[in-house]
């Protein structure tokens, strides 16, 4: 009759035991990896948002100085590949001296998606 051998003090691990152990290890490591992965993604998102703020501020400065030609639609941001900017200006008074300006910075994320942030400001310019 075939039956399992009685446990013996020097029997060692069976292949099944080893594989179960490794499976558990793998699951555990996957969890750790997932944490790393999400941390890396969060860091990248934060970086992109910092960049978008820098671009928006520069755009606002150039708009205030009047050196940027409007309208600006999905125009690539100079020196920052992957980033695009769209500017919409709405006059707030008849003379058009006060303008409500929305600066939308959009960028493509690593996952292939698109993300965007809108920065709103009021520009005053005498004509």
């Amino acid at each position: 009759m075939r039956c399992a051998a009685p446990p013996s003090p020097n029997a060692g691990f069976t292949l099944v035991e080893l594989m179960v152990a490794m499976g558990i290890l793998l699951v555990g490591m996957t969890g750790v990896l997932a944490i790393y992965w999400s941390a890396a993604r969060t860091a990248r998102e934060a970086r992109d948002r910092t960049t978008s703020a820098i671009i928006a501020r520069s755009t606002a400065a150039e708009l205030a100085a009047g050196t940027l030609a409007l309208p600006l639609k999905d125009s690539p941001a100079p020196n920052y590949p992957r980033f695009e900017r769209t500017v919409t200006a709405t006059p707030l008074d008849d003379a058009g001296a006060h303008r409500l300006v929305d600066i939308e910075i959009s960028w493509s994320t690593a996952g292939g998606g698109k993300e965007s942030v809108v920065y709103r400001t009021i520009l005053y310019r005498e004509r």
Partner: peptide, 13 residues
């Protein structure tokens, strides 16, 4: 791979 990505992200950040 994940570690180098993380390290790069960290120092880049």
């Amino acid at each position: 791979g994940a570690l180098s990505l993380w390290r790069e992200g960290e120092s880049g950040g």
